[in-house]
Nucleic acid binder design. Structure first.
Lengths: 148, 148
DNA sequence: CTGGTTTCTATGCAAGTGCATATAAATTGA
DNA sequence: TCAATTTATATGCACTTGCATAGAAACCAG
């Protein structure tokens, strides 16, 4: 086996820990304000950005890196809450379009006031513009698709 | 609300995405090799490092950032598999010591051959030593404890 | 066309997680 | 010393996630 170097192991550990820590803090803020989890927010935001506030489940999955079955049930719950609506996909009866509702847009906006502030507090304030840019660049390298 | 800057939002998004992506890839490797999840590994590794391969649940929690109730049940499962053993804590009957077994040590080592290789493949190979160091330094800033 | 394959979404069941709370022991403070 | 509080771990119950697979429509090869 090719042992990872100490520097690599350390960075890997920190990535896990930092993500867990910051996500934990931010989720706690959202919950404290009576809002649902980041997953809900992610879906709402993606939909809002989509054409006419609509995307297929597949597109959402890809955008937010959810499992298919997982998203399917998340959409169930969001639909029950009136945040999204499933409508037929023209020309392909297998697919569907998920459309954000007015209530969904409103929730996304209200959540953002808390979420954005939390990002600042737990993330932005600790980095500064230049460092944020460096971090983005480094993390991007991890996202490159596999090319065995 | 203090809007986070574009650079901060981007870095935040990448942190989530990179973590999810790399963890996903590595978990898939482990599962493919017939091993349990990273959580199990984390606990085994912490225990192995502890004095005589022993730690209290509290210490493990703090090390791996698990919820108390969550760890309690994870230890149940690991104990059933013979990977750890719960023993009394001398002088305090509330506490306990969790001790890694021979089977636990063996599993940790076998997992490392797959895990270490995966860290290299999905993480180390994409960064290089210097960048790994930079990434560590940046992520450390996110881990500082809250100081309102 | 048509039978086999692929794509898209949903779902039964098992496993894991979160929340609230229980249980028990130690500590604190009057 | 002993009642109240705090600390450490476990657990009932609901909710969420993972796994495997179903069901249905579209696509593809001959």
């Amino acid at each position: 086996m090719q042992e990872p170097s100490a520097a690599v192991i350390k960075a890997w550990g920190r990535l896990i820990r930092a993500e867990r820590t910051v996500v934990g803090r931010i989720e706690a803020e959202l919950k404290g304000a009576g809002f649902p989890s980041l997953h809900w927010y992610d879906v709402l935001l993606e939909l809002k950005r989509g054409p006419n506030g609509r995307l297929t489940p597949r597109q959402i999955e890809e955008a937010v890196l959810f499992e298919q079955y997982n998203l399917s049930r998340l959409l169930d719950r969001m639909e029950v809450e009136g945040l999204v609506r499933r409508i037929p996909f023209p020309g392909d009866k297998r697919r569907q379009l998920v459309e954000i509702t007015g209530a969904g847009r409103a929730l996304q906006e209200r959540m953002w006031t808390v979420y954005g502030a939390a990002i600042n507090r737990f993330f932005g304030e600790r980095l500064g513009e230049k460092e944020a840019g460096q971090l983005s660049a480094l993390l991007l390298k991890l996202l490159q698709s596999e090319n065995t």
